[in-house]
Design a protein around this nucleic acid. Structure first.
Length: 802
RNA sequence: GCGGGUGUGGCGGAACAGGUAGACGCAAGGGACUUAAAAUCCCUCGCCCUCACAGGCGUGCCGGUUCGAGUCCGGCCACCCGCACCA
């Protein structure tokens, strides 16, 4: 009598066996071929794992398990991105130290991940809040500082009044805090910045070296936003001064009929005495300052502005005096904060000119510039442009830049949308920034021997409204001596953002316990780059970009051996609630993996997560679908009852077995987990149809299913008495020649319409097949056959007339 | 506005390289087993017409290429995501 399938028992059993056998420990034998599979380490939140986590984890666990069976030395690690606001907020509310909160959450997450049977190498677990880890986060910061890539500056930052913290541009979504949704506003504050802009070109060029999805590459490129053009100086009438602008269309310079400055442009204050309508200008400035970024971009794109009466500029090409306006459609943060307006060939300038009745002069023929701006650069010829007349746009660009350079009026210039990275947070639960401020020596880096700079114990983690960190109240800690001159100095009290620790964690996994450097160079050389990194699309312009930046920097200082950190990147689709909406507590559609495992087992959950749909697309949870996967595993379990002897595939199964090995092997490599599982289900259906599975077939089947459902396959492997363990057996191989059937069903068509099928040998010759086809279609072939098409193994088509 | 993506049964989704559309799963209907139910096993399952055979229609819409189009080309439409006055 067959025992019923009881996942709760066998899953615990095998998890214990694997742990005892150190089944998934990474080898330190650097002569073996390596494979580094990485999933984004989670933030250990208080809610625990939700069913979204297992989708990417299972997918890469499948890859990792398959690679081990193929003989690779596999690094598949897990860790904790544990600094962060929710932990700190929870700590404040419940008066528990965030360290304790983190410990508890990590424990909970670990238990949940172990329950799901992942083949992580737990000996290599890292935790960003561990001083032994953040030692090296701080070390990298010091290197950045010494390289001039970390600097402190007073600037308007994105302030979230709810989190009481400054945010990076990447953390602002629709003008609101990415985390809590509160509208942010601009606040002047001194901030640490990282000069990611210095790496803009390297980050762009590096994309050509890696295998990322196009959508990821494209959004990184757009975010960096490189644009080439020129800077041009316009003389200010009656002064020695120039007004410098950036333009991507220097070719249209003859058509510049006015200029626009950002309301924050410093020239306004400088020439206040010349500006006749200063009251109106000031009013406009105040109006613009009051608007949040959100309002400035989202609300009415209707153009507004004020002319600076009494201040004009000179078009360097035409020599004509042109007016200067201020308008909030020109941003101080991009280019020079001022533009030359060419209404005939720029949509925004055109709209502005229409509102204020400014002249529109066509300089590129090809459109009707009184009706709309003509912005096409591919067609069109220069007109009304002096020496440029008759040139194509691209030729004109070169010519005008050469002319500007010769006259000393301008030069080629590249601009980026990318801004430097706001790197300080006014909160407690983050890495302390290892810098002290000395009246004599300025900002002084801590000596590297003094790292890690430990996060001090404080009485209150409460953030302050004035924007200073909770650490600022710790005067014992804040007051220190200058490492440089020995005089009194104060410590930096802001901490690093959560993105710091995650920017290099994949390096630490290669050598997680090293106390002398961030990781042994030999280990880095062997393991890098990460072969396959899966993570969320939401990190494309955050974590993924930040960590590439750090890696490029570390490469430049010789700390890592590769230019790029990740060779291949994939992104999973989110798991939605059963209602098709994003899972959230407020909607009440959250599915808890613990309950799914308790009711159906981890193998069922894993199988369902892989079967739920195309890996890169969103998928809605389905309780019925989960049951379907459990049903499949029950059918697998009961294959034991029809198990027959046989050390080779049976005749009737042979082709099917080879086909399935081929299909599953390639699908596991190309994110098609759903169809791999479908092929395995179909194979089981076939075993049921013939009411038989022999030992050779069963063994191969177990190996193919093992990466997805490791527990049940291990149990069946043992029960069947196969040698060793399933997890460390060799991945099955197929014979290409044996994947094709000898006899095939050919589709018969008349004028491209299906009219029947015949069975024929795959290699049957044309005459034989056409004769058989005509016989089969007797009666349906009326008229004259004008063409006969035969594609061996596929189709016969007769083209008939009359 | 710019960029990216998606559109196939009642549902999730398959379809190599242009070659039998709907694999696999879910739901539904029918049958077997059972005192009964659950579970399990077997059968049916795109739409229209037909008792059945045979046929007609069908992959968002319109057109094109081809012996043959879900797949290629041109033109639209809808929805989703990202960026967004970036000069």
């Amino acid at each position: 009598m067959l025992q019923p399938y009881n996942p709760n028992i066998i899953e615990k059993k095998w998890q214990a066996v694997w742990e005892k056998e150190r089944a998934f420990a990474t080898s330190n034998d650097y002569t073996r071929p390596k494979y580094y599979a990485l999933v984004e380490f989670p933030y250990p939140s208080g809610q625990g794992l939700h069913v979204g986590h297992p989708r990417p984890y299972t997918a890469l666990d499948v890859v990792a398990r398959k690679r081990r069976m193929e003989g690779y030395n596999v690094l598949f690690p897990m860790g904790w991105d544990a600094f962060g606001l929710p932990t700190e907020n929870y700590a404040i509310k419940n008066h528990i130290h965030p360290r304790i909160v983190t410990e508890n959450n990590v424990k909970h997450f670990t238990d949940q991940l172990k329950m799901l049977g992942y083949s992580f190498d737990w000996d290599r677990e890292v935790n960003t809040t561990d001083p032994k880890y953040y030692h090296w986060t701080q070390w990298i910061f010091l290197k950045l500082f010494k390289a001039g890539l970390a600097y402190k500056t007073k600037m308007p930052i994105n302030w979230c009044p709810s989190c009481k913290v400054g945010l990076a541009n990447e953390e602002v979504v629709d003008g609101c805090c990415e985390r809590c949704g509160t509208p942010i506003y601009r606040k002047q504050q001194t901030q640490w910045m990282l000069k990611i802009t210095a790496y803009a070109d390297k980050l762009l060029d590096g994309l050509d070296l890696v295998d990322y999805p196009d959508r990821v590459k494209t959004s990184q490129r757009n975010w960096i936003g490189r644009s080439t053009g020129a800077e041009v100086d316009f003389a200010l009438t009656g002064t020695e001064d120039k007004l410098r602008v950036f333009t991507t269309r220097p070719d249209t310079l003859f058509g510049a009929t006015y200029m626009v400055m950002s309301p924050e442009h410093p020239a306004i204050a400088k020439y206040a005495d010349r500006i006749e309508n200063m009251d109106a200008v000031k009013a406009y400035q105040e109006e613009a300052a009051k608007k949040s970024d959100f309002e400035r971009s989202e609300l009415a794109k209707d153009k507004t502005g004020v002319e600076l009466k009494g201040l004009t500029a000179v078009n360097p090409c035409t020599g004509k005096e042109i007016p200067i306006w201020i308008s909030d459609y020109v941003l101080m943060s991009y280019g020079t904060g001022a533009i030359m307006a060419v209404p005939a060939h720029d949509t925004r300038d055109w709209e502005f000119a229409k509102v204020f009745g400014l002249p529109i002069i066509e300089v590129v023929a090809g459109g009707n510039v009184q009706e709309e701006a003509f912005t096409d650069v591919a067609t069109g010829t220069m007109v009304n442009s002096g020496f440029l007349n008759g040139l194509e746009v691209e030729e004109a660009k070169k010519a005008i830049i050469a002319w500007l350079e010769e006259k000393g009026l301008g030069a080629p210039k590249v601009n980026y949308k990318l801004r430097d990275w706001v790197f300080s947070r006014q909160r407690y639960w983050g890495e302390p920034i290892p810098i002290v401020f000395c009246d004599k020596c300025g900002a002084v880096p801590l000596p590297e021997e003094e790292l890690p700079l430990l996060l001090p114990e404080v009485d209150s983690y409460e953030p302050t409204d004035d924007g200073s960190s909770p650490l600022a109240k710790m005067t014992d800690w804040v007051n220190t001596t200058c490492p440089c001159c020995g005089g009194p100095a104060k410590r930096e009290t802001d901490t690093m953002p959560q993105w710091a620790g995650s920017s290099w964690y994949y390096l630490r996994y290669t050598d997680p316990h090293n106390e002398n450097c961030l990781a042994d160079p030999e280990a880095l050389k062997y393991w890098l780059p990460v072969d396959w990194y899966n993570g969320g699309m939401e990190h494309t312009t955050l974590h993924l970009l930040y960590s590439r930046f750090w890696h490029h920097f570390l490469y430049d200082i010789g700390a890592v051996p590769t230019i790029e950190p990740y060779q291949k990147r994939t992104s999973h689709g989110m798991i939605l609630g059963e209602d098709g909406e994003k899972m959230s507590k407020s909607r009440g559609n959250v599915v808890n993996p613990d309950e799914v495992v308790a009711e159906y087992g981890a193998d069922t959950l894993r199988a369902f997560e892989m079967f739920i749909g195309a890996f890169e697309q969103y998928a809605a949870w389905s309780t019925e679908g989960v049951k379907g996967c459990r049903r499949f595993l029950e059918r697998v379990w009961k294959l034991q009852e029809m198990l027959k002897d046989g050390e080779e595939y049976s005749k009737e199964m042979e082709t099917r077995m080879h086909q399935t090995i081929k299909k599953v092997s390639s699908d596991f490599e190309s994110l098609k987990y759903n169809t791999a599982l479908a092929a395995l289900m179909a194979l089981v259906n076939e075993f049921y149809r013939v009411k038989s599975v022999n030992r050779a077939e069963f063994k191969t089947f177990l190996l193919l299913l093992n990466p997805v459902a490791p527990h049940i396959t291990e149990e069946l492997w043992e029960t069947a008495g196969f040698e060793g363990r399933c997890y460390n057996s060799r991945w099955p191989v197929y014979d290409e020649a044996k994947t094709v059937e000898d006899m095939v069903e050919l589709a018969l068509q008349v004028n491209g319409k299906m009219r029947g099928t015949i069975s024929a040998a795959r290699t049957a010759d044309r005459e034989t097949v056409l004769a058989a086809a005509k016989e089969a279609l007797a009666g349906k072939l009326t008229g004259t056959i004008v063409k006969e098409i035969y594609v061996p193994g596929r189709i016969v088509n007769f083209v008939v007339k009359g």
